[in-house]
Amino acid sequence: MIIGIPNALLNIKYRDAIQEFLHTIGITTVVSPKTNKEILDLGVLNCVDEACLPVKIFHGHVEYLRDRCDIVLVPRIMKLHKNEFICPKFCGLPEMVKYTLDIKNIICPTITAYNEKTLKDSLYDFSKTFRVDKEKFKKAYNGFKSNIYKYNKINSSRSNLRVLLLGHPYLIYDDFINMGLIKKLNQYGVEVFTEDNIEPYDYTYRLIKKPFWTFLRNTYNCAISLVETGKIDGIIYISSFGCGIDSFSIDLIKKDVGSFPYLVLKIDEHTGEAGVDTRIEAFIDLLKRRAKYEYNISSLG
C-alpha cells in the first residue's frame, strides 16, 4: 500500500517524522512535490472560495496525490498544547477535503498531542488501521520522535540588521507561497529569526485572558520577548488573507509594541511579487536609516 502525504500545512513541519514512522511499520509513502503553480491552481479551483490560501493549497496537494497513491493522509490535528487549539479549519479539514473534492480514499487520524502519552495514543490509534504489533509500533514511535525536529531550520549569517519573521510555519517554510521571502531577506544582508530558532519567555500575563490558540500564544510571546530584550530591529509578519487567528495576533502585537517597525505582508492567490519586493525593500531602507539617524537626533528638535 502507498500512502500519500500532502506537503502542505503542518505536514511541512512533521513530514520527515511521519515518513519515518510509516516506513518503519512497512508502508511505502509518496510525498507531493513542493507547492507549484499547478498545485495552486488545482486547489483554488476545487476549494471553498472563502477558505484561506494554505487550506486551498492543501486541497491542491490532495487533488494532485489522489491518483498517484492508494490512500491520502489528511490528519485532523486538534491540540498541540493543553487547553489550546490549532484552528477550526484544522479540526474540520478531513470533512472539507472529503466533501469538496468528493474523495473517498483518505485516512484521517485524529492527533491530540499535548504530552508524550496523548501523542503516543493518537499514533497508536492511527497504526491500528494497519494491524501493527506493539513491538513494531514502539520502534516506529521512536523513529517518529527522533525526526520530529528535523525540518529545515533557517540558517542565516550574523548581521547588524536583525528581523523577526513571524507567521504560521506553513507560510514561512513554503517558498512558493511566500515568494522566497527568506532568501530575499538574506540577500539584503538581514539576519532572520523565526519562532523555531528562539526561545521566548512567557508574556501572556499581559493579556486579560489566556489565549487558546497555540499560534497566537507563540507569535505573541516571540514578538514581545524579542522586542523587550532589544534583540531585533524590526518585525515582518507574513499572514494569509482571511486568517482568523492572524487578524487577532497582528493587532494584539501592534497595540503592544507601539511605534516599533512592523511590516505586515498579506498574501493570497493574487499577490504580485513586485509589490511585495518593493515593500520589503522600503522596510529595510527604513530600518537602516533608523539605525543610523534615529538616536542621533535631539528630541528637543
Binding site: F85, F248, L252
Partner: peptide, 29 residues
C-alpha cells in the same frame, strides 16, 4: 467561550481597541 472560534478572543482585543481610543472601560466576561 474557550472554543477554537474567534469569539473567545473578542474581549481581549475589544478592550485594547477601546483603551487606545482613550476610553476607560471594564469588561466582565
Amino acid at each position: 467561550s474557550c472554543g477554537p472560534c474567534r469569539f473567545g478572543e473578542y474581549c481581549e482585543l475589544q478592550k485594547k481597541v477601546l483603551m487606545s481610543l482613550g476610553r476607560q472601560i471594564n469588561f466582565i466576561v
